Computed example of a mutant assay.
Amino acid sequence: MAPVARPPSHPRALIRSTLLHSARSAALAAAAPVLARRGLTVTHTQTVTLGVIVAYVAAIAILWNIPYVRNVLWPFKMLVIAFHEFSHAFAAVLTGGKVVSITLDPNEGGATQMKGGKSAITLPAGYLGSSLIGALLTFCGFDIVASKVASIALGVAFLLTLWWGKKDWLTILTVLLAVGLLVGCWFIAHAEPLRFVVLFIGVMSSLYSVWDICDDLIFRKVNSSDASVFAKRYGGSSQCWGVIWSIISLIFMIGGILAGIAAFPRSFEEQEKDSQGFIPTR
C-alpha cells in the first residue's frame, strides 16, 4: 500500500503575497500579446469577469495573511486539497491502481492510500491535477451555462471523493458543504451567482496549487512531499520538479483565462437567457 500524503502547510506571509501577485501579473501580461496576435477583443462582460478574477486574487492574498481572518478561506482550502487528493486517486484508477481511502487533515493536509497504479503519473497528479481543475473552472466561470456544466462535473467528482473518503468525517463535511453551495446557487437568478462561485473556486485552486508546490518543494524543502518521492524514483531534485510543476500550473491558469475569453463573448443578458433554457430552476 503506497501512501501519497501532503503535509500541513505553514504560512509565509510575505512570500505568499509576492507569489500571488506574481501569478496575477504573469497571467495578465501573458494574456495581452496572445489576444493581440489572435485578434480577440475583450467584451464588457469579459472585462468585468477579468476584474473579478483580479479582485479574487487580491482578496485571497489579503485574507490569506491576516491572522484569524484567514480562517474564512479554510473551507475553500480544504476543498482544493480535496481536488488534490481526488487527482491522485483518479490517476491511480486510470493507470490500473486501486484507491483504498482518501483523508483530509484539519491542518490543511491530506493523504490518498492506493494500491498499484503508475507512480510516474500518480505522484505529480495531485499538484497538476488540482491546478488543471482550477484552470477548467476558471474557463467555465466566464459563462453561466458552462458553470452549470462544471458544477455537474464537480458533483460527480465529489461523489467519487465521498465514496473514497467515506470513513473520514472531514472529507464528508467538506464535500457536502461544497455540494450544498453549488446546488443553492442554481436557484438564485437563473444560476447567475454560480459562475462567480465556480470562478472563485477555480482561481483559488490554481493559486493554491502553485503556492503549495513552491511552499512544499522550494521554500520549506519538505522531505515527504510527492516531488521528493518522484525525484528519488526518477532522478532530479524535488526543487527542480517543483519549479517545473509550478510553471505548468501557471500555464494551465493562463490557458484557462485565454480560453474563456475566446469561447464566451456573450453578454450577461445573453448568458442569463441561455441559462433559462439549460436545466432551468425557476
Rank of each mutant, 00 (worst) to 15 (best):
L40C: 01
W74V: 06
F76R: 05
P67C: 10
F83E: 08
G97R: 06
L35F: 01
A91P: 07
V93C: 03
P67L: 11
T45F: 14
L73G: 03
A30D: 05
V93Y: 03
R24G: 15
V52F: 04
V80R: 13
T95P: 02
H44E: 13
W74G: 07
W64E: 08
L28T: 09
F86A: 14
T41F: 08
L28P: 04
G96Y: 07
A27T: 13
V93D: 03
A31E: 08
F76P: 03
L35T: 07
A29T: 10
N65E: 01
F83N: 07
H88T: 03
T47K: 11
Y68W: 15
P33I: 11
F90G: 01
S25Y: 12
A82C: 06
A61H: 01
V72W: 05
A91S: 13
T47R: 15
A82V: 03
F76Q: 05
S25A: 15
V52D: 06
L63C: 07
V34G: 05
K77T: 11
A59G: 12
R24V: 12
F76L: 12
T47C: 03
L40M: 07
N65Q: 05
T47Y: 02
N65W: 09
T49I: 15
A82M: 12
F90T: 06
A29D: 07
A89Y: 08
I60F: 14
V69K: 10
Y68S: 14
L35M: 09
G39C: 00
K77W: 14
T45M: 05
